[in-house]
C-alpha cells in the first residue's frame, strides 16, 4: 500500500536485507539504496560489533526492523524480556513500522527457532490477534504480520490461510507484510491457486511486500532465499501491486549470498512493476 497508517505513512521504495557479507561493501562504497531491512534479533544484543555496524548504517540509511522470533501465533503470550529488548532497538533504529511472522515457534518456554505453521482455527485467531495487540501496544509502532511458507496443513484447520490472515489483521487492526514468494511456495505445497490468496486479503492493510527465491524439490518447494526471484513470483508480485498499489518492497536473499550489486540489481527489478500500475478495485484477477 502507498503511505498508510500501517507503514507509518512512508513511501520507502525498494529495499534489501542487510546481511553480514555486504557490511564492508556498504560501509566503504555507500551505495544508494532506498532502505535496508534488518533482522531485529541480530541486533538485540547488549553491545559489541553488531551494534557498532548498525549505528554506522543508521547514519546513512533508512532501516526497517523485521523479526523472526515474536511468534504471534504462540498459544503463550509474548515474552516480556524479548519485547523490552526489541523496544530498545526500535528506539535506536527509529523503524517506522515493524514486521514479524504469522507463525508459532515456542511453547512453555521451549524454542524451536523455526517459523512453524498454525492450524487455522478460531481459537488461533483469537490468541494471535491478542498477541499482536499486546506487542503493538507495548512497542507503540505499527505492526505488519507476514504470511509464512509452509509444508504441512493441519486436520484441525477450519478455514483457508488467507481467511485466517484476514481475520487476524482485522481483529488486531494491524498491517500485512505480504510475502508473495511464500504464497507461491505454499500454493505449490498445498495445491491452491496463489491468485486466490492475493485477491482475498485486505489490500488496504498491505504495508510491505517481500520477494525472494525458492528451491524446487521433487515433491515440494522449499523457501530457501538462495536464488533470484522466479517468474511465477514476479507475476504474483505484479498481481499484488495491481491490488495494493506501489508498496515498499524488500528482496530477501539469506543463503548463498552473492555480491551486493547482484542482490541489489535483483531487487531493483521490482521497479519495473511499481510505477506503472494503477490500483484496481472490485476487479477479479485473471
Amino acid at each position: 500500500m502507498p503511505a498508510s497508517r500501517f507503514n507509518a505513512f512512508t513511501e520507502y521504495g525498494i529495499g534489501i536485507g542487510l546481511r553480514l557479507p555486504h557490511y564492508q561493501h556498504i560501509l566503504e562504497k555507500k551505495p544508494v539504496v532506498d532502505w535496508f531491512e534488518i533482522i531485529s534479533e541480530n541486533y538485540m544484543v547488549e553491545s559489541g560489533r553488531p551494534l557498532q555496524i548498525l549505528d554506522q548504517i543508521l547514519e546513512q540509511y533508512r532501516v526497517v526492523q523485521h523479526g523472526v522470533s515474536m511468534y504471534f501465533c504462540n498459544a503463550d503470550r509474548p515474552n516480556r524480556d524479548h519485547l523490552k529488548k526489541l523496544k530498545a532497538l526500535t528506539r535506536r533504529t527509529k523503524t517506522p513500522w515493524l514486521s514479524d511472522h504469522l507463525c508459532w515457534g515456542s511453547i512453555d518456554g521451549r524454542y524451536t527457532h523455526d517459523l512453524l505453521p498454525v492450524p487455522y482455527t478460531w481459537e488461533a485467531i483469537e490468541k494471535t490477534a491478542r498477541n499482536i495487540c499486546e506487542v503493538q501496544d507495548f512497542l507503540e509502532l505499527p505492526i505488519a504480520v507476514e504470511n509464512v511458507s509452509s509444508y504441512a496443513e493441519f486436520h484441525a484447520s477450519e478455514m483457508s490461510e488467507w481467511e485466517f490472515l484476514s481475520e487476524v489483521v482485522e481483529r488486531a487492526d494491524c498491517g500485512i507484510l505480504l510475502d508473495v514468494n511464500n504464497i507461491y511456495v505454499s500454493s505449490r505445497n498445498h495445491s491452491f491457486n496463489p491468485l486466490d490468496y492475493v485477491e482475498n486479503v485486505p489490500h488496504n492493510r498491505v504495508a510491505q511486500i517481500h520477494i525472494a527465491g525458492h528451491t524446487k524439490y521433487e515433491k515440494y518447494i522449499l523457501d530457501t532465499h538462495d536464488h533470484p526471484v522466479l517468474d511465477p513470483v514476479w507475476e504474483l508480485y505484479n498481481a499484488a501491486l495491481l491490488r495494493s498499489g506501489p508498496t515498499a518492497t524488500l528482496l530477501e536473499w539469506d543463503d548463498k549470498i552473492p555480491s551486493f550489486d547482484e542482490v541489489h540489481n535483483e531487487a531493483l527489478k521490482a521497479k519495473n512493476f511499481q510505477p506503472r500500475v494503477p490500483i484496481l478495485k472490485n476487479t477479479k484477477l485473471a
Binding site: 504462540n74 498454525v118 492450524p119 481459537e123 493441519f154
Partner: peptide, 8 residues
C-alpha cells in the same frame, strides 16, 4: 478442534 496449546 484441539486446543492450540495442545497442538503446539
Amino acid at each position: 478442534p484441539p486446543k492450540l496449546a495442545a497442538i503446539q
